[in-house]
Amino acid sequence: MTLAQLQRLYGASTASTTLISPSLSLSWYLQPQFAAYVQWRRSGRAPTSSERYGLWRSGIYRCNCIVVGDAGLKAETSNTFDIGVKGSPAPGVRLNGSVFYTQYKNFIGVTRYPRDRYPGMFANAPAHLVTIFKAGNRDKARIYGLELGTRLEHGTWTPALKGLYSSLAFGYSKGESRSSYEGDKYVPLDTVQPAKLIAGIGYDAPGKTWGVNLLGTFARGKQAQSTNRDSYRNTGSGLTESTVEFIRVPGFGRLDLWAYWQITPALRLDAGVQNLANKSHWLYSNARSYDASSAADWRRFQLAAQPGRSFNISLTATF
């Protein structure tokens, strides 16, 4: 497209976005080292220059479609509410926990517009174009859940166990989104991770001259849910439900063993054995979008498995 065509398509004005991200936190101490809190945060993301003014064509003269930005895009925004506790409720105990809720709106997505249904959008476009894919504030979403973490120093209560500690961390969240398309509904967000529990037990020698830690990671299985939002043809009918079924990513339990040796104040040796039991497992974030009806995707899914038992060692010198 020529510069004149681009100016007709986007207009001559220059858009700008001002984002204000306030927050408010109220805390009260239940004990001198242990506090409860309530918090609110507002965040946002301004549209990028490509989302506002980007242009993409597959071929210069032969393509009959175009992907364009929208100079009038609004910023994506979110409001997060947290209620939790943090600190040390008793000697030898560290505790952090919260429940949260986040509301998102004006998520930016790309919508298909055919010329025969939206002729007004093609008034300033070249005559050979029949489809415009345009960025827009299309989706909204919400995510909520809880997080909990604690560490216990066992030597606080039993001097003979000084240096022995245990830790526990748990996270659970659920999210869902919907678009502005007619007929759409809230569908679980595929990017939200499944529940995970991490538990560990370890020992640090006096002066932390050496130490060892056994860590167990346990993740729940999850199956992502597909939508037709990104393939919606926008020809007048409502959005239909997707018939694609993704492969369910199974849950797993994995053990990792770590050790360190502080050889000198400036020299430290670290070594570890990951996936101690040599169990096959998959990370949901890496394997959530494989089609269960596709033999090729099943092969790709198998290739996406995490490594079996592995070893690593490193030597760090501090100057």
Rank of each mutant, 00 (worst) to 15 (best):
A305N: 08
P89G: 09
S314A: 15
R42Q: 14
T158G: 00
I313D: 00
P307G: 02
L303Q: 15
L95T: 05
A295D: 15
R309P: 02
Y113G: 02
A127F: 00
T131R: 06
G207N: 08
N275Q: 04
Y104P: 01
K134D: 02
K134E: 13
A304S: 15
L161H: 05
L3I: 10
T158L: 13
S310V: 00
K196I: 15
S173T: 05
R62P: 05
G97E: 02
N137A: 12
T318A: 11
L267S: 03
A125I: 15
N96P: 00
S98F: 05
V244N: 09
S98T: 01
L30W: 12
G59V: 08
L168V: 14
I60C: 03
V93H: 05
G136N: 07
W157N: 06
R8K: 14
W298S: 08
L168Y: 12
Y113L: 11
A205W: 04
W258Y: 15
T102N: 06
L152Y: 13
Y260E: 07
G97R: 01
R42F: 09
W40M: 09
C63F: 13
G97P: 00
P119N: 12
L148D: 03
G54F: 04
T2D: 09
G251E: 04
Q7V: 13
R151H: 06
G120N: 14
T227M: 05
L26M: 13
G175A: 11
A219H: 01
S50R: 12
G145F: 12
K74D: 14
C63I: 06
L197I: 15
A75T: 08
G136T: 13
S13R: 15
N275M: 05
L214W: 13
D291I: 10
G72Q: 10
S78K: 04
